[in-house]
């Protein structure tokens, strides 16, 4: 049973942020609230004030921007899975959104909520971090940008401070060949990721050489992490190297970055082993997409 709290329904961002400033830590921004409501129901979290963001519908959008796209923090996952995706990263976002929770919870759950919940197994978080997405944060002190891969500090803890609100995410769409992929291990068709990985490759103009590689891992550390060792193996290499066993070697190196724990969903050992498989599969998928696009 949820403990009692006060309810606020600001009409715009400024009002919301002012409320948060005044109410402090006792207050929580309530986007879709699908995670928060469970935390409150179970007693894991007690809040004194709910700042319901339902009225801030202008924070639900997907817009083209310079060098990429901006997605509003209140965009529900159900909108993301219906994305009319015309860039590689948006396609990945669309596919990842469709994996998350259930049809009827994706209609409430939001992009921003998923990031702010800061779960190391959050599907979208892992994918966005791999893409080099940038969180846009607004507070009374102004607006700042935080790379998504630096947004999660610990389970349930983000880089947001004080009155700050995550207002949206920028998804890069460089004008050179690039692609991304996400893979996870799950039990039934509806599940939380037992372990997950995402990879994103950006090529040079010729489309032959990997200019930038980003590999992220989910549910193998207290936060979504990057497999920097594996990234280094890829940077500067020809894309064609991914044919053959190289992808598996990179996967094995990525597994070295994983620091998983054993919990009721999976053992540390299995998680670590699967990082190798998933990263390799992400890389094969990305290289296949890039080869096809060239």
């Amino acid at each position: 049973m949820m403990s009692e709290f006060k309810y606020h329904r600001p009409e715009n961002i400024t009002e919301a942020i002012l409320l948060k400033r005044d109410l402090g830590d006792a207050a929580a921004y309530w986007a879709g609230g699908t995670d928060l409501v469970l935390q409150c129901k179970s007693g894991k979290r007690r809040i004194g004030h709910c700042i319901d963001l339902t009225a801030l519908q202008d924070l639900s959008f997907i817009n083209a921007a310079k060098g990429g796209y901006r997605i509003g923090t209140l965009t529900p996952l159900s909108e993301l899975e219906r994305l009319n995706a015309d860039t590689p990263h948006l396609r990945t976002i669309r596919d990842v959104a469709a994996l998350m929770c259930t049809v009827q919870t994706r209609t409430i759950a939001t992009l921003g909520g998923n990031l702010c919940n800061a779960s190391p197994s959050a599907d979208l978080f892992v994918a966005l971090a791999a893409m080099g997405a940038i969180a846009q944060v607004t507070g009374l002190g102004g607006t700042r940008e935080v790379p998504v891969d630096a947004f999660m500090l610990a389970p349930g803890k983000t880089a947001l401070t004080g009155d700050e609100m995550l207002t949206g995410v920028f998804i890069p769409a460089p004008d050179v060949p690039h692609a991304s992929a996400y893979r996870r291990i799950a039990r039934t068709v509806v599940d939380i990721a037992l372990v997950s990985a995402a990879a994103s490759l950006t090529l040079d103009r010729t489309g032959e050489k990997i200019n930038e590689a980003r590999i992220t891992l989910g549910a193998v550390a207290p936060r979504v992490i990057r497999a920097t060792g594996a990234e280094e193996m890829l940077t500067g290499r020809p894309l064609s190297d991914l044919i053959g066993t190289f992808a598996k070697e990179v996967g094995a190196t990525a597994a070295q970055s994983a620091k998983p724990i054993t919990d009721i969903r999976a053992s540390a050992e299995y998680r670590k082993n699967m990082v190798a498989v998933l990263v390799a599969r992400c890389l094969i998928s990305v290289s296949t997409e890039l080869e096809a696009g060239l």
Binding site: Y7, R9, W30, G32, G33, T34, V37, L38, C50, D52, T54, S78, T102, V103, Q104, T105, T107, I108
Partner: peptide, 18 residues
């Protein structure tokens, strides 16, 4: 259904449904 879309009503605060 909330505004035509399916919603798990056990996760939605009554305030959100106003």
């Amino acid at each position: 259904l909330v505004d035509g879309t399916p919603v798990t009503s056990c996760l939605m605060l009554v305030g959100q449904a106003m």
